[in-house]
Amino acid sequence: MAYVSLEIGHVKYDVKSKHENNRFAFDIRMDIDVNLTERLFEYNLEKDKQRLEQSLEQELQKKCGALIVKIQKHRIDPIGLGVYAKAFHYDQWKKVENDWGRALAEAKIRVMPKVTIKSSGVAK
């Protein structure tokens, strides 16, 4: 099994919200710069960089998806999507203001990470 340790540097995110078919929808795009700090497999930065970035994106998407499932299951909003709903869809948000947890649990939330490896540091 291949393992990699990384340091997340700069993260830029963009949240787009919609309200359609009586439910909210959020698209969360993340641009993530990472520095590899350790790897337990052979790796050529120039040759395999894109493949490793795609693998990291898939793993992050999987982990973020699991987090979203937990957030919706427990009907909590630790990432502040209610702020976006209120700001951009006030009339629809106002209708569910007192039961935002339920509305969030029914929302469609997609997380789309884009990983860029900035360096492999001293990883060997």
Rank of each mutant, 00 (worst) to 15 (best):
Gln54Pro: 07
Asn98Phe: 02
Leu104Glu: 08
Val83Met: 13
Glu97Thr: 03
Arg102His: 10
Arg102Thr: 15
Leu60Asn: 07
Asn98Pro: 00
Ala107Thr: 02
Gly101Phe: 08
Ile117Leu: 00
Gln92Pro: 01
Asp99Gly: 08
Cys64Asp: 06
Asp99Ile: 01
Ser120Asn: 11
Lys124Pro: 09
Val96Pro: 10
Asn98His: 11
Lys73Arg: 11
His74Ser: 11
Asn98Val: 06
Trp93Pro: 04
Tyr43Asn: 08
Met112Val: 07
Gly101Leu: 12
Ala107Gln: 02
Lys73Leu: 03
Leu56Ile: 14
Ala66Pro: 00
Cys64Ile: 08
Arg110His: 09
Met112Gly: 01
Asp48Gly: 04
His89Tyr: 05
Ser55Gln: 11
Glu53Trp: 11
Lys63Cys: 05
Leu52Gly: 03
Leu67Trp: 09
Met112Ala: 11
Lys49Ile: 13
Gly65Trp: 03
Leu104Ser: 04
Leu56Ser: 07
Gly65Glu: 01
Ser119Ala: 08
Lys118Phe: 09
Ala87Glu: 07
Leu56Phe: 14
Lys94Thr: 08
Gln58His: 03
Val83Asn: 11
Gly80Ser: 08
Ala87His: 06
Ser120Val: 15
Leu56Gly: 05
Asp77Tyr: 09
Cys64Tyr: 11
Glu42Cys: 01
Ala66Ile: 01
Ser119Gly: 10
Ala85Arg: 02
Asn44Glu: 13
Ser120Phe: 12
Lys63Trp: 02
Lys95Phe: 05
Val115Arg: 07
Pro78Ile: 15
Lys47Glu: 14
Glu42Arg: 14
Pro113Gly: 05
Lys94Gln: 15
Asp77Glu: 08
Gln54Tyr: 03
Gln72Thr: 00
Val83Ser: 12
Ile109Ala: 13
Cys64Ala: 15
Thr116Val: 06
Ala123Trp: 06
Gln54Arg: 13
Leu45Gln: 12
Ala107Asp: 03
Leu45Lys: 15
Ala66Arg: 04
Ile117Asn: 01
Leu67Phe: 14
Gln72Cys: 00
Asp99Gln: 13
Gln61Gly: 10
Gly82Asn: 08
Leu67Ser: 11
Ser120Ile: 15
Leu60Glu: 00
Glu57Tyr: 00
Glu97Met: 06
Asp91Cys: 02
Ala66Asn: 07
Lys62Arg: 03
Lys70Gln: 13
Thr116Met: 02
Lys49Tyr: 10
Ser55Tyr: 00
Lys73Tyr: 07
Ala85Thr: 05
Lys86Asn: 14
Leu52Ser: 01
Lys118Asn: 13
Ala105Trp: 02
Glu46Thr: 12
Ala123Ser: 12
Val96Cys: 14
Lys70Thr: 06
Pro78His: 13
His89Val: 05
Lys124Ile: 14
Arg110Met: 05
Glu59Gln: 08
Lys108Ile: 13
Lys70Glu: 12
Ile117Asp: 04
Asp91Tyr: 04
